[in-house]
């Protein structure tokens, strides 16, 4: 479970996701990308993976900090146009945000890795040893 603690408009996103889930893909009308910087969190056995869409962002425009059970990311992008052009249509946004994601389990903050590639940030947060599943050897009595 991912707990957001920031924006009330997230409820609309949740509704969008619910509608997407009940509509079969083929009959859905194509819609526009709703907003920049979409963030998702995956929970696997070994690690959490956070994925954020940050088109046009350079690594130096991104700030990441990680604690025992949270991650914070801040980014700022300004859409700039080359000089001498007249805009005919403008849909892309500049964005600036700070977001804190609380993780449901402890992570090994020392071994967190982050990669920014093709405008997508992927952060891998290995779970702390204390919350990883352990196999118990059963001994014959």
């Amino acid at each position: 479970m991912l707990i957001h603690r920031f924006n009330p408009t997230d409820h609309f996103r949740t509704m969008d996701m619910l509608f997407d889930a009940i509509m079969p893909p083929g009959r859905r009308a194509t819609h526009f990308v709703r907003k920049p910087a979409r963030v998702s969190l995956d929970d696997s056995e070994q690690a959490f993976t956070l994925r954020a869409e940050l088109p046009g962002l350079k690594p130096e425009q991104l700030e990441l900090s990680v604690g025992e059970d949270w991650i914070e990311l801040g980014a700022k992008r300004e859409t700039q146009y080359p000089e001498g052009y007249t805009p005919l249509r403008r849909e892309r946004n500049s964005y600036e945000f700070e977001r804190r994601v609380n993780l449901p389990k402890r992570v090994d903050a020392e071994n967190v890795t982050a990669q920014l590639r093709d405008g997508v940030l992927t952060v891998t947060l290995p779970k702390h040893a204390s919350v990883q599943p352990r196999q118990i050897a059963v001994q014959a009595a």
Partner: peptide, 17 residues
């Protein structure tokens, strides 16, 4: 086209000189 991925329109800017 049937696709498992959600189809979206990318956001664009159009400029002219």
């Amino acid at each position: 086209t049937p696709s498992t991925k959600t189809v979206v329109h990318p956001l664009v800017d159009v400029l002219e000189n």
